[in-house]
Simulated assay, not measured.
Amino acid sequence: MSQSILDRLAHLVDGLSIVSVCIGSDPDAALSISPDASRVTIGSSEVAAVTVIIHPGRVAKPLQALRGKSYQCTGEMQFLASLLVEEATTPRCGAQALLAAYARALIIHVLRDELASGRMKTGLLAGLADARLSKALVAIHGDPGRRWNIEGLAERAGMSRAAFMRSFNACVGETPMGYLRRWRLECAREALLAGERVARVANIYGYASVDAFSRAFRAAEGMLPSELRTRSGPAGASE
């Protein structure tokens, strides 16, 4: 069995980027996720000890399922939280790199804990926690440009077509092909913001033509991919 099948979080956390770590006061071991899933806070006071601001991306989807939740950090999470707070409140050489690394590791532990707990009953994390559906989801995440169909994804999951469709819809909350389309667009959006050329993005993520990609992107995002790419700055200003 390949590593990509074993690691259910690999392609989600690839896109996890820390924008900044803000320092406040009154540190403790409480961790909470903001309602919009853009911030993870360590500290229980109104002015938190450390607030981690996350760049919107593919990892936002599973974090959104946890929005508004709070955790009392224990074990490895408590150790990481203490390192993060110490580094934030006593900055030294290399502090920014360590802060981002600690924050990233802590968020991965939160997601790993949710998968292991099986607490989520619907949504992406619930699908990734399922022994069979996770194989199809990881296949989508790892190769979104492939011409997937229901039969191929059901085979990955080791299920019949009908059973796979029923289970995926009930667990993840949408159809497999609907999820594939959204995942492709999320990945395409990240690539465009990084300055990748529109034609290349369309090709990488399995669209038949640039026009087909542009129509799908505009329907989902309300703008053409070239418009978003231009917003990414000088690197994306030229086609």
Rank of each mutant, 00 (worst) to 15 (best):
Q3A: 12
S4F: 02
L6Q: 14
A10G: 07
A10Y: 09
V13K: 14
G15W: 00
S17Q: 15
S17A: 13
V21C: 12
C22W: 01
C22Q: 11
C22I: 05
I23Y: 12
G24P: 02
D26L: 02
D28A: 04
L31W: 01
L31I: 15
L31D: 01
I33F: 13
I33G: 02
P35E: 11
A37V: 12
S38R: 14
T41Q: 10
G43E: 06
S45W: 08
E46N: 04
A48P: 14
T51Q: 06
H55S: 07
G57Y: 00
A60F: 05
K61V: 10
P62A: 04
A65Y: 12
S70A: 15
S70N: 08
Y71R: 02
Q72M: 13
Q72W: 11
C73F: 09
G75I: 05
M77P: 00
Q78N: 12
A81D: 09
A81S: 11
S82R: 01
V85A: 15
E87V: 02
T89H: 09
T89W: 00
P91C: 11
G94A: 08
A101G: 01
A101S: 10
H109Y: 11
V110S: 04
L111R: 08
R112L: 08
R112G: 06
L115D: 02
R119K: 12
M120V: 12
K121H: 05
G123V: 06
L125I: 07
G127D: 03
A129K: 04
A131L: 15
L133A: 04
K135H: 04
A139K: 07
G142D: 15
D143W: 05
P144M: 09
W148D: 10
W148F: 07
I150P: 03
E155R: 11
R161W: 09
N169I: 06
A170D: 15
V172C: 10
V172M: 03
T175F: 11
L180H: 13
R182I: 07
R182V: 07
W183C: 06
R184D: 06
L185E: 01
E186A: 15
C187E: 01
A188W: 01
R189T: 07
L192K: 03
A194W: 07
A194K: 15
R197N: 01
V201D: 00
N203L: 12
N203K: 10
N203H: 12
Y205A: 00
Y207E: 01
A208Y: 03
A208W: 08
S209H: 13
A216R: 10
A216G: 06
E221A: 13
G222A: 03
S226Q: 10
R229L: 04
T230G: 05
R231T: 01
S232H: 09
P234V: 14
A235D: 13
S238F: 11
E239C: 04
